[in-house]
Amino acid sequence: MAHIDYYFSTLSPSVYLAGTRLEDIAERHGAELNYKPLDLMALFARTGGQPLGQRHPSRQAYRAQDLVRQARQLGMQITMKPAHFPTNPAPSSYAIIAAQNEGGGNLGALVHSVLRALWAEERDIAEDSVVRDCLAAAGFDPGLVDSGMLVGAETYAANLEEAVNAGVFGAPFYVVDSGQMFWGQDRLEDLHAHLAGKL
């Protein structure tokens, strides 16, 4: 069975645009997914990336155009300047970690629900009430918001270290046990082809 380590940030519009395509690909190939939410700003600092506001204006302008094009192509709504961005990604990340440990719900749906709340619904994913709604909608106990804090914080930090050691530098980032790495939601078809033995 193939394994995919999925490194992502709950603040990333590119993670939002990935939707649940990764989960569909994993299911088609019988691959196991390991969800690894992390602090993207800390990852940038460790791997030579720059926060959005520090990038050259031409890079920011291109990003704004491209995200809108990608959203249209995928038939997804996106708000380029959501009301609560940036916000604290830790609470939603801790909840995802707790849900993965707990099991019983749909983890892919949870991740997408959190990202949709930020980028399409303009809700603040740092608020416990929003995270509880996302947990419940994906079939998890909303109480994980409270019970998963300690383990969530420890795992969140460990995910960053694992990412740096694995050569990850952005999000979404997919690392297959074959050693192949794929960066960006626009590389999901390449991941699919690789798992099919075509790449």
Results as ranks from 00 to 15, higher is better:
D141S: 02
L199M: 13
P142F: 04
R21C: 01
L107N: 04
L43Q: 10
L195W: 06
V145E: 01
S147N: 02
I96H: 04
G152F: 02
I25V: 15
P86H: 12
G53A: 14
R116K: 15
D190V: 09
T47C: 09
P91N: 04
N88I: 08
E162C: 06
R21N: 09
M1W: 02
V164S: 09
S14L: 12
G148E: 01
A137P: 00
H84F: 15
Q77H: 13
A117E: 04
D141F: 01
L40G: 07
L11Y: 06
T20D: 05
N106S: 13
S93V: 07
V176G: 00
G148W: 01
R21G: 00
L195C: 10
L17W: 05
L38H: 10
A158L: 08
A99R: 08
V145I: 09
P172S: 04
N159C: 03
L144V: 00
A153D: 11
G103K: 09
E154L: 12
S58N: 11
K198W: 13
A61F: 13
D39R: 09
G184F: 08
C134I: 00
V68L: 15
G179S: 05
P51H: 11
G53K: 12
A31Q: 07
H56M: 11
A64W: 10
F85P: 10
Q65W: 13
M76L: 15
P13D: 07
L195N: 08
N88M: 06
P82N: 05
N165T: 10
N88L: 06
W119P: 05
P37G: 10
L118W: 08
A42E: 13
G48S: 09
Y62P: 02
E23D: 15
D128Q: 07
A109H: 10
V151H: 07
S93W: 04
Y7E: 05
A26C: 06
R72H: 12
C134T: 00
V111S: 11
E32H: 13
A166E: 12
K36L: 15
E127D: 14
R59L: 14
G197E: 10
T20E: 13
P37E: 10
R59H: 12
A136L: 09
D177Q: 03
N101D: 14
H194E: 13
F173N: 06
E122Y: 01
R59F: 12
Q180G: 00
A99L: 03
F8L: 13
V131Q: 01
P91V: 07
E121K: 11
K81F: 12
S12Q: 10
S92V: 04
V151R: 11
R21F: 06
E162I: 01
L118P: 08
A71S: 08
R187W: 03
A193K: 14
L150M: 07
M76D: 02
D186A: 09
I97D: 07
A98Y: 03
S147Y: 02
G197Y: 09
S113R: 14
F182N: 10
G170W: 04
A98E: 06
A61Q: 14
L33N: 07
R116D: 12
T10C: 12
Q77V: 13
S178M: 07
I25Q: 08
A193N: 15
D190Q: 15
K81I: 11
V114F: 02
F85Y: 15
D141W: 02
V114D: 03
L74S: 09
A26P: 06
Q60H: 04
G152N: 02
T47A: 10
G105C: 06
A193P: 00
R21S: 12
L144G: 00
T20K: 11
A42M: 08
A18F: 00
D133K: 03
